[in-house]
Design a protein around this nucleic acid. Sequence first.
DNA 1: ATTGTTCGTTTGTTGGACAATTGAAATATC
DNA 2: GATATTTCAATTGTCCAACAAACGAACAAT
Lengths: 255, 255
Amino acid sequence: MAFARLAILPTYKVVSDTIEREILAGRLNAGDILPTETELADQFGVTRHTVREGIRILEQSGLVRREAGRRLYVAEPHYGDLAPRLSRAMVMQRVTFRELWEVSMDLEPSAAAHAAGRIDADRLAQLRANVEATEEAIAAGASIIPLDVAFHILVAEAAGNRALLLAREPVTQLFYPALERLFRHPKTSAVGPRRLVEAHRRIVEALADGDAAVAREWMRKHMVDFRRGYDTAGLDLDQALDPTAAPPAAPPPRR
Amino acid sequence: MAFARLAILPTYKVVSDTIEREILAGRLNAGDILPTETELADQFGVTRHTVREGIRILEQSGLVRREAGRRLYVAEPHYGDLAPRLSRAMVMQRVTFRELWEVSMDLEPSAAAHAAGRIDADRLAQLRANVEATEEAIAAGASIIPLDVAFHILVAEAAGNRALLLAREPVTQLFYPALERLFRHPKTSAVGPRRLVEAHRRIVEALADGDAAVAREWMRKHMVDFRRGYDTAGLDLDQALDPTAAPPAAPPPRR
DNA sequence: ATTGTTCGTTTGTTGGACAATTGAAATATC
DNA sequence: GATATTTCAATTGTCCAACAAACGAACAAT
């Protein structure tokens, strides 16, 4: 006969697993303050240092959070916490623009279609404001990329599907550098922004009308335009993305 | 004048960021062995303990790995490392079956369509074997769920799109418990498996023919069936998923 | 050829210590 | 009486020193 491998875990891992289990079982709820490091060390019967290593793991997985120097509390892991890590994984796997685009080609039009039936007045107003701001930015010659990214996030949020939101976020984060290069390129910088804002406008109109089919179709066209621009700019669809291009920097944590 | 907030980070975070930057910049490649903790502590001019906390962070994000008790080496973060955390985030956000299904309704048919043009003989054989095994399992009255999950992963892999693979994995992981309940339910257990295996068979045929449209359409039908089964079983589409249902357990780490 | 032994290296864990920061209570100021 | 200011205990972040446990490799013993 054969024995199964023993599951021997280092103490710090046992610590993090134990706390994690309490959170997932609902005995610790979001917002709850955890005991201090010293108390945890006493309760578990280990050193404070070991507890700290366990905390680092929980922090990284988003289950607990700490505003530097202050007490630890239970948090709900949020999309934004995980998306950067996914993006990084894709960069390291040398994912190509084509792969990202194919996924977006599924998710973005679908998000628009779902949004058509679910959007509320508030978000519709935000979208209209976004389109306005985009046109102003074009007139002023400013960068429209943050506005474009914001537009797509708004649409995805309006779709009322958190799984969709989570699936598309790491992908679109990686588009950022590609977009930058695209709108700086002479061949696409002239006509590109105008086509972009027109598509955005049509999508917003369709959402206002509650017309899912039209919203989907214009989003599709919009995505096709994006890819065509990439082609026109002479960029290689099948090349790995530029890993050096930094993702949008997070604001420094409050301390 | 006013100064911007200083980005003061704890030392352990600086340590992990520094090593992370070296990896992302390609100066440290997958497989490379990192210096020992003591050496790192000396080089950075901090305590070994601080280094260890930094390492916990890197380990958690999948950038470095250690087989317990042994030296640290650089690793490529893999889908499987991140998907469980995404799934957990969705559970905690009380994501509904409907949300998951909507996303799968986009990604699965699309995966099938892409796979039609890209699948190789080897994977096609694997898919055929999977369908065979599924039929045997039905005849034997065994659970077909692991086989179903494997089928969809095979199709997604055949699509040759890693971004797609990454996007769909956390979603389908959450389907697992739903599938379990579905196939145990008296109303769906009779006809469900037969329809499932027929759809799988049609999809494989379409992939063999390189017919993207047919592959997409059968996958779509297959997904619609899934949802209908959920309805028929009297389960609520808009209820949060069961958080207690454990994801497939990972094998204990080698030690 | 397998099993034991030894040894240097590296990780895992512990203990105690202290500076820096925080939150809140206590005090002073207007 | 309300608002600053100061004080102070609590807590985190970091350091130093030490040792047990596990590993890899080399070598001896059966």
